Simulated scan of single mutants.
Amino acid sequence: MLKDIFIGLSQNQFLNNAAKKYGLKMGAQSVVAGTNIDEVIKSIKELNAHGISCTVDNLGEFVFKEEEATEAKEQILKVIEAIHEHNVDAHISLKPTQLGLDIEYSFCLSNLREIVDRANNYGIFVNVDMEDTGHLQPTFDVLDELSKEYDNVGTVIQAYLLRADEYLEKYKNFRMRIVKGAYKEPAEYAYQNKKDIDANFIKLIEWHLVNGKFTSIATHDHNVINHVKEFVKKNNIPNEQFEFQMLYGFRKDMQLQLAKEGYNFCTYVPFGNDWYGYFMRRLAERPQNLNLVAKQVLNKKTNTIIGIAAGAFLLGRLTKSANKKRR
């Protein structure tokens, strides 16, 4: 139920637009690394100083116009230039829908090719993120096309997908981020039970650590992290073959500790005013994340806003249900 609430909130364009007006005043500055490139570069430098690399996400939602997608592309190109100019340890994460996948496939591919080409010139990696299953195959198609020309691209496999192991094997020669998944998907495409998702998550991580190119393990769960530590030790997998990833602002002490222990660590660094959908999906992905950020993010104002939003969403659901019963 709680996951459904946050997924519903993430897809609410009205609330997304309202959040933009507040910017980071709502407390999101603890989980979003600034609103502009200068601020995000400063955040990256601070993390680099602790031996932590970064993957940078220029946040953006609900892109259905070419000018919006072009604007997003230009911003990402500027981020790439800034990473090169400041010589920071960072790469790019991006979502195809932000670059026009919902507008036209060839338009999106052209935008992505320009970004990957610019990044390739500087030796910067680009991770093509996965979204919901409606965009799954087109995203794989984009990845297939780009990989014909470039080797600085990778992607994400979501453990809740029933065919995740097939996708992982097909793309085993790509740098791969493995996640549990943050969208609500029907049973015909995805596991619905948390235990099944967790078990598949471990299964995919282990398989790719043994058979894949490079594995990014995206989790805040210390049980998973401890399991991976034991697995790589038992199977003589060098640290150079994998990294742990966490979101900016989450479990900061653990991020620092893992880097201090000598593990490769990468922080997912989002920036921009369009943070709302991203934040709601993180809460949907793992409701326990709400506890992780409660002290550092959710002040009284934020609690009130999220509470009102959640209440509005639930009221809408109840109203729909009541109307159906009347019919």
Rank of each mutant, 00 (worst) to 15 (best):
D253Q: 04
N235Y: 13
E261C: 12
G249S: 07
T97G: 00
L9W: 13
D144C: 03
A284T: 01
L315H: 14
E166T: 10
G51V: 01
D102L: 15
N58A: 15
E71N: 12
V32G: 13
H220V: 06
L77E: 10
E185V: 04
R317A: 13
F140E: 00
N226Q: 05
N273H: 15
D4R: 15
F313M: 06
T70G: 08
L247D: 07
I237R: 04
R175A: 13
G51P: 02
H220I: 06
T215W: 12
N299A: 01
V224M: 07
D132Q: 15
K325D: 08
K194T: 05
Y189H: 15
V63A: 09
Y189S: 10
I103P: 00
D221M: 03
R118E: 15
H208V: 04
F125N: 02
R326T: 14
A82Q: 14
A18M: 15
E206R: 14
M130Y: 07
H222T: 06
I5Y: 12
L247G: 07
N16Q: 13
D117H: 09
I80F: 04
Y189A: 11
G154I: 07
G60K: 01
D89K: 11
N17C: 11
F313N: 05
N173W: 06
A309Y: 01
A28L: 11
K295D: 11
G100T: 14
W275V: 10
K195W: 08
N236S: 12
N152M: 01
L109E: 02
Y171H: 07
F107L: 02
R286Q: 14
D141P: 00
N36F: 08
L94C: 13
P238A: 00
L161W: 06
F174L: 09
N211E: 15
Y122F: 15
M176E: 07
T139H: 05
H135M: 12
Q137D: 11
F231V: 10
L94P: 03
T139I: 12
H84Q: 13
I178L: 01
A187C: 09
R175N: 14
D253F: 10
